[in-house]
Design a protein around this nucleic acid. Structure first.
Lengths: 121, 121
DNA sequence: CATATAAGGGATAATATTATCCCCAGAAGA
DNA sequence: TCTTCTGGGGATAATATTATCCCTTATATG
């Protein structure tokens, strides 16, 4: 996320998508924003496993890549809203498929993860 | 990839998909295997930016999650072939979408990445 | 004999990514 | 006054992931 010393192949579509969706919470953020959860505090409540700090970092990157837009209302208390750009919206089918595939296969994947953690004692 | 100390939300479909496709070369490996590039050496030639070592690690994980199957021919020189399982095949539409979206948006994403690296001097 | 190919992996370094902690501002409500 | 809510981020620790290096086995080829 910060600087990359080992340049990644810029000629590969898969890598490009990875660059956008690779962050741990980015897919969740995009999906949440797409359904109208637009303010930072709401997003954090939606994804409480994470931290404001980290969410901010990932939001900033999504903004850098113009997947989302940020509207700042200069008020007190401050108010910020994110929304998807057209480019961001074009990711929705992909994200939905990711989510669906994951849901369908969740029991199976989960069981394997649990086996692994048990194998560690 | 090795051990995870911070447990990830097992109830989220997106996270499950991430667990499978999160490795740097896993999507490429799966796509390559799907088009018949089945032997480790072939795969490495297909993805020369990586290393045998790393590819092996990622292949092993894909196997653990039963996305691919490994056939070992006990010969000399050794011969190994990977192929997709049914579960692995079910990932193909997703991978193709990832690839297509990435290809479409590659020029744009690339330009932003390049701006960032230039901004570092 | 030197080199290549096949597949694999231990040990360790380098990098990248996330998490944690604690701070800031200003206003409203109990 | 003490707490809560808003949004934000510096500094640093902890973890996770990839990369690098080098060695093994056995056959075939120049």
């Amino acid at each position: 996320m910060y600087e990359k010393k080992i340049p990644l192949p810029l000629e590969c579509g898969l890598m490009m998508t990875r660059e956008i969706l690779g962050g741990k919470w980015k897919p969740n953020l995009l999906l949440a924003i797409s359904v109208g959860i637009s303010r930072p505090s709401q997003l954090h409540r939606e994804i409480p496993q994470s931290t404001k700090r980290v969410l901010n970092l990932q939001l900033k990157e999504l903004e850098e890549f113009e997947m989302i837009e940020k509207k700042v209302y200069h008020q007190l208390p401050p108010k910020v809203e994110y929304r998807l750009t057209e480019r961001g919206k074009s990711l929705m089918p992909l994200l939905q498929q990711m989510n669906e595939w994951g849901e369908k296969n969740r029991p199976f994947i989960k069981s394997i993860i649990l086996k692994r953690t048990k194998a560690l004692d």
